[in-house]
Write a protein that binds this DNA or RNA. Sequence first.
DNA 1: GTCGCTGCAAAGTCTTTGCAGAGAG
DNA 2: CTCTCTGCAAAGACTTTGCAGCGAC
Lengths: 158, 158
Amino acid sequence: MANITTNFNDRTIEYEQLLSDFKQLLKTNSLKFTIQREVILETLYNSDEHLTPESLHHLIQKKFPELKTGIATVYRTLALLEDSAMVTSLSFGAQGKKYELGAKNHHDHMICTECGDIIEFVDEQIEDRQHKIAEALGFRMSDHSMQIYGVCKNCQHR
Amino acid sequence: MANITTNFNDRTIEYEQLLSDFKQLLKTNSLKFTIQREVILETLYNSDEHLTPESLHHLIQKKFPELKTGIATVYRTLALLEDSAMVTSLSFGAQGKKYELGAKNHHDHMICTECGDIIEFVDEQIEDRQHKIAEALGFRMSDHSMQIYGVCKNCQHR
DNA sequence: GTCGCTGCAAAGTCTTTGCAGAGAG
DNA sequence: CTCTCTGCAAAGACTTTGCAGCGAC
């Protein structure tokens, strides 16, 4: 089985680069660079998880309790980052969305319906094919998402 | 461009069959067959749209005003149908889920980010590949969903 | 200084639940 | 008859918004 990649530990963009992109984005839109916005970006960067607004907020409160960052700011910043395509949101069956940094390599998700574990992967054949389908249907494709649901190796053994 | 199918007007299951499956399901679980449940199933069957609980409720109120079906019953019945895999829910970026009958052929979705239009399609190459990926990662695959986002032909011309 | 940002709390959405009466089996 | 369903309204969960003071530029 070739061409399936699941290793995303090597991020495509280093934090300094990401931060500078973010600052540029803010400047372009006459928005201000605040410590809260930086902390949110940094926490997203340092997390390998797919975070809900609530879990992101908890992480920040634990790590920077002196900031007393409000959940509203987390929501506002996530909306800002999503609008600028710096983060991507996923909505699975459960209620609420999960967010991840878009600066990582593009990938799709395989989700274990037993334990909720998420494995990221990329398959070039599928990526190619998606572009061809969009073209054939007359769409100007901007994005896509794919989730495969099933039971992971660990949960099968239990 | 071969092998992309977008024609789903020919349903795989006729209504009588669907209804009888539903009755069987209810019987098996010692649940009762009520007029509200039938109306919900029928309305889903007769709609080619992907419905939100609210839009489904509106349709039912318009068509069967004498029933005064409550929104809570719609939610409860959709949850029941989804648990039994008779309907599938989709959660796109927007808030809220949309539901569709699972009795139609399996398909994926191409979604216009301008007008919200949804085109259904199937591509065998991708279907095959998904199974192979699940296998390679040790998953026992149960289901998958794929959405391609972009701007549809009509909206490009505007 | 100006004008956007933040935290807080209040207000909105969407969804679920408790309950008493109605109805299917 | 019994036990599940239903509509209603209240409660919950999650998200957004208004506002006054704060802070980046």
